[in-house]
Design a protein around this nucleic acid. Sequence first.
RNA 1: GCUGGUGUAGCUCAGUAGGUAGAGCGUAUCCUUGGUAAGGAUAAGGUCACCGGUUCAAUCCCGGUCAUCAGCUCCA
Length: 637
Amino acid sequence: MSKVCITLKDGSVREVDSGTTFAALAESISRGLAKNALVAKLDGKTVDLAHKVEDSGKVEFLTFENQEGKDALRHSASHILAQAVKRLYGDVKFGIGPAIANGYYYDIDTPHTFVPEDLAKIQAEMEKIVKEDWPIERLEVSRAEALKLFGDQGEIYKQELIRDLPEDVTISLYKQGEFVDLCAGPHVPSTGRVKAIKLQSVAGAYWRGDQKNKMLQRIYGTAFEKKADMDAYLTMLEEAAKRDHRKLGRELDLFSIQDEGPGFPFFHPKGMVIRNELESFWRKLHVKYGYQEIKTPIILHQKLWQQSGHWDHYRENMYFTTIDDEGYAVKPMNCPGGILIYKSTHHSYRELPLRTCEMGLVHRHELSGALHGLMRVRAFTQDDAHIFMLPSQIKQEIKGVIDLFNAIYSTFGMSYRVELSTKPEKAVGSDEIWEVATNALREALEEYGMPYKVNEGDGAFYGPKIDFHLQDSIGRTWQCGTIQLDMQMPELFDLTYIGEDGQKHRPVMIHRTCYGSIERFIGILIENFAGAFPAWLAPVQAKLLPITDRQIEYARSLAGRMKEQGIRVEVDDRNEKIGYKIREGQLEKVPYLLVIGEKEVEAGAVAVRQRSKGDLGAMPVDKFISELAAETKATKA
RNA sequence: GCUGGUGUAGCUCAGUAGGUAGAGCGUAUCCUUGGUAAGGAUAAGGUCACCGGUUCAAUCCCGGUCAUCAGCUCCA
């Protein structure tokens, strides 16, 4: 038997017989590894442990600690889910069943409608399959064999998948007990390795994600190697749910959404404080970065929207009205309005880049099922800006915008993911112009050294864009900032500037938002801070808590003094014990609670209790005021 | 918009095998004047989402609508 040389992760080299399985190899290295390994990686490709070593190469064993290990285990769990469903319901056709970020799902077509109670039943059957500990075997078959196998079972979706596979791929099946599925793998060695399973929800999902196709039923679940890890994960999810901005928004009385206005949020006084602070911080930065603020109307004539292309490409998202028998539209974007201002005067190349910004209220008809608290609404304020510039200024301006984004996001300590979106199906302009614009964005990102992902076909109808995605409390991402390069609108509106040569030239436009929408950004902030806003954003920065009614008058006069200093302060003068007032102040997440008893009145002091640090002891009132001022200075207008 | 779930007091939730409802928190009033996360008493508060049907009788059963939740699709 021939020998091959295997290089292990630590760099050591082993000589083994050709045909040795990875499982046996792991066994020969250590018992712990044999026990923990789920799949192996051979020269960068993940494979089953039953895979045989044929040639020399680099081998790494993957456990649940590795992402690939997690994915393999969860992918195997999805097969167990399908097997259980088939056992229990029989008349089922399967779509796809991949591993996803924190679990897996399987899409199922069946006349039976799954209700939440079914999940417990299916989960019990899955646990049975785990106990039965079926080996998971890989089989390689010809295209014809695969088509016949799934055809005999009426698996029309699997047949469709097989037909769409490229000619040259090996078609593989995975078998566990009586269940066989079309699958590229890899999988863990046996069903018994999936020690902890939880089915989480059932939802509809279009076959292949296309609205025109049949809607299948999708069962979501998660799986872990150890039950303790799964319990910890589920507990973490419960904790995250407590940070949901819809829940905190109600509890902290920041905003509400009423039946009378689905998708049209109401901002309460405390929510307005946050909003106004965000806006004034924004204005301060925009002055610094050379922007001029404008405001354009919410309703504009229909012909403007026909000229801009919105009529043809965005109409289904717009609201319309009639004024004096003329058609008007409620703006879904701010750009046409901003363009009209640009066009109201002539421009010299010397004025460019011309940066105009606008807190613009836009309305969009979003699908009812897509609405989500403040994250997706039908009326929102974009912190928009339009930069008109020379083609030669593109890269420089984009980098300037990214600088501004960094200044804003770093203030909140938020991390983001960047995506570059390219030409969509519904678009205006030639491929060449799109190519130029897309490359400009790509080069700016690369020169800035910013990691990004490409999102094919996801651009705006008038240009490609760079999107900044932020995470909510349970890890869903939401697009916030965006930078869109537009060579179409200047053309459609015949925008010009007078160049050095005295001739008219076409400027290029950037559309961009940093927060994205104030509403969505506040939603993200609420979840990121779990409602405990930094002092500069906190609706109430300090609450004065007199211990008895003999200190109320002193507390009120202090509150007056602090308000004069621009501090947002409340006095809790209710007839309650101090412990009770403190508890409420903590639950309201007020940054500073100032306890005032007889001692403080005598000394002209306040006893400071900081939200996270607790009782800091008494300090002179002036000292507290100046320390709070120092804390909020950086973001003050 | 689609698939499934949910809708009872301001909030969180019980409940009625069909006979028009209850708790805790919150609110109001009174007692209590208390030093770092809940002092006590009393009271007010609901067309049981809305519209229609079945029934002697519907919050409960049936149909529709609206809203909301999860996901799909779409997007800031």
